[in-house]
Design a protein around this nucleic acid. Sequence first.
DNA 1: CAGTGGTCTAGACCACACC
DNA 2: GTGTGGTCTAGACCACTGT
Lengths: 242, 242
Amino acid sequence: MADLAYRQIIQDIKKQILNQEVTNNRLPDERSLSEAYGVSRSTIKRALNVLAQQGIIFKKRGSGTFINPLYLKNHSLFQFDGNNLGMTDNISMAGQKSTIQLLDYQVQPASLEIQQNLFLNEHDFVYRIKRLRFVDDSPIIIETGYIPIKLVPELTPNIVKSSIFNYMDSEDHKRVIKSFMSIQVAPSTPEDQELLSLTATEPVGIMAGTFFLDDGTPFEFSSMRVHYRYLNYNTSIDLAED
Amino acid sequence: MADLAYRQIIQDIKKQILNQEVTNNRLPDERSLSEAYGVSRSTIKRALNVLAQQGIIFKKRGSGTFINPLYLKNHSLFQFDGNNLGMTDNISMAGQKSTIQLLDYQVQPASLEIQQNLFLNEHDFVYRIKRLRFVDDSPIIIETGYIPIKLVPELTPNIVKSSIFNYMDSEDHKRVIKSFMSIQVAPSTPEDQELLSLTATEPVGIMAGTFFLDDGTPFEFSSMRVHYRYLNYNTSIDLAED
DNA sequence: CAGTGGTCTAGACCACACC
DNA sequence: GTGTGGTCTAGACCACTGT
């Protein structure tokens, strides 16, 4: 797949780190790596920058490049940004089966909030799609999504019972590549309690935000109410610069 | 502050976008920008990559570089990664005053979990610091932090009543630069309810994780129970690559 | 085909850490 | 001073989009 030089180097260095083939928790300097891999120093820097951003290594100007000891101890922690859960579609959760129940499917005028979030005019219409997602027969997420009609005029309830994103990719060659989400916490409503099998004291997590296509078009505004036991969002935070 | 060429270009382009000085929602091509700013194309690419990662622009190979329309509509949404809340220290929340009440301060052997997270041996000791944070006199966060003694042997309860990170920076020249956190949701415990003035049906958000120094040393393992109304974590997610 | 972004090179010079 | 990572250059060549 990734035949790009810098990606191969990323993979190779990652493997060496995991195999404990790196002595002193320290990588060779960039100029040596450049020679060893037979690429320019720029390419090495590109690879190391990715690894640094993933928190796997730390670079210190004047000193060298070091391995994050925690990565060795527990590198399963180092999968970030919603890979555990949180994607509207593509939830597959390691070996467990995921199903969808369609709760509601309508076409309606875009409210002011929706207009703003999807960059629509006041006369635009959107699909309002409400779905309940199960993983291994347990209800996990109540998801309400809004999609502009003009972007997918051919959508049907049937399509919506599985992954909309996959459908878009394979049929329309439109790919969802980015999203901006906020995460909040709230007590469960009676509807949450019924659909997600919660008691009154059990809460939900709320992930809401907008998904974008690769050309920058806002594609879907989505609000997900997540069973509290199944929301686990991992992230890395940089406390620095601009 | 940032006299680096690529940072200046980032700021300048951002300003032009906000001032609507960019026609057609489209930036000039990289080679033109390179000439216009009097820098190499590589430097332009570096700047554009940062803007793209922030979601402000989208690049399409073969077509050009385009502005995310949502950024114009509501660029306040585009401040990410815990800037709203979530940092253990440095919570200053725009104009509101923040105070700290010290609930507990102990030295104890590191438990197995703490050993793992802070990369310690079984004979190492840690501070256990439990604090209640207020913003504008409202209790917001119950924070329990663990810090290896050997990293800051001189810590005192007095220091701990304000920002530990600031103290570390100014006194020991050790800077906290990165953290890996997980975000979860849970019903409130009786203790949560008392300290954060919650009812039984009101939940808390939990942010737990490890903070690292600039040399990669794990510095603090922290678990924060956050009043549900005050947890609002914004993030951007890339659905692509490696 | 021309235009655009993506990858990569080979090297200069700077800033910082450590001896 | 030596060694390290950081910034930046000038340019080659490739891959994709659109006319």
